[in-house]
């Protein structure tokens, strides 16, 4: 049997370091992360601004790559941090996006697998309330909540992305979720958050 040896995948940090001498290698970082950054930005600000935000993020990353912390092999939190800062410059677009979502009349989505239908209906019906709640959050709280919920960043990664302490991540997340729960009709302020990481 032929043994196929895969070339080792270089850590992001090495790609970034090498791109200082060979700027074209920066394309690898784009190919690794563009899709997830774009999806996240698309969710937050919609189609048009998302393209601008992602382009600005990668260009800012390219400019700052000389100061990348080589002790961090995974560049994903770094890129999400830059993305978050770029999103902040598009806060008007995000506000308009959330306003539109908060006004959307709930509609019944196409039926999916049977056991998902109820959830999806619930999600769809809750969308205006969630959008209103997100719009009402402080920017830093919203960033933390959505990096966790939509960006799938861990608490540690969120802290690294935003340049804040992990305790601050927890407190912001706690505050944001309490407000979201209230918007969803949960009036019990002592409600346990059972899935803290």
């Amino acid at each position: 049997m032929a043994v196929v040896t895969q070339p080792p995948v270089e850590a992001d940090a090495a790609v970034i370091r090498d791109s200082l001498a060979e700027p074209d290698r920066f394309a690898e970082l784009y190919d690794r992360y563009a899709a997830q950054l774009y999806r996240y930005a698309y969710r937050r600000v919609g189609a048009g601004p998302a393209e601008d935000v992602v382009a600005e993020t990668f260009l800012a990353a390219f400019q700052k790559r000389g100061s990348y912390d080589q002790a961090r092999p995974d560049a994903r939190p770094w890129l999400f941090g830059i993305l978050t800062r770029e999103l902040a410059r598009h806060h008007r677009a995000e506000r308009a996006h959330l306003r539109a979502l908060s006004r959307a009349v709930p509609e019944h989505p196409d039926a999916g697998p049977a056991d998902r239908v109820a959830d999806r209906v619930a999600a769809h019906e809750s969308r205006p309330a969630l959008a209103s709640a997100l719009a009402a959050l402080a920017a830093g709280d919203r960033d933390v909540l959505l990096l966790v919920a939509w960006g799938d960043l861990s608490y540690e990664e969120t802290a690294a992305a935003m340049g804040i302490a992990i305790g601050t991540v927890r407190s912001r997340l706690h505050r944001a979720r309490r407000k979201v729960r209230a918007a969803l009709g949960d009036t019990d302020p002592t409600h346990e958050m059972e899935d803290d990481q």
Binding site: A27, R43, A50, E51, W150, V180, L184, D195
Partner: peptide, 26 residues
Amino acid sequence: SNDLMLLREMGESLDPPIGEPPADLR
């Protein structure tokens, strides 16, 4: 928790129609 789950589902409902970013973006 319900709130995070609903938030994630909201996120998925807002995803771009095609998974990849536009070719022009690259």
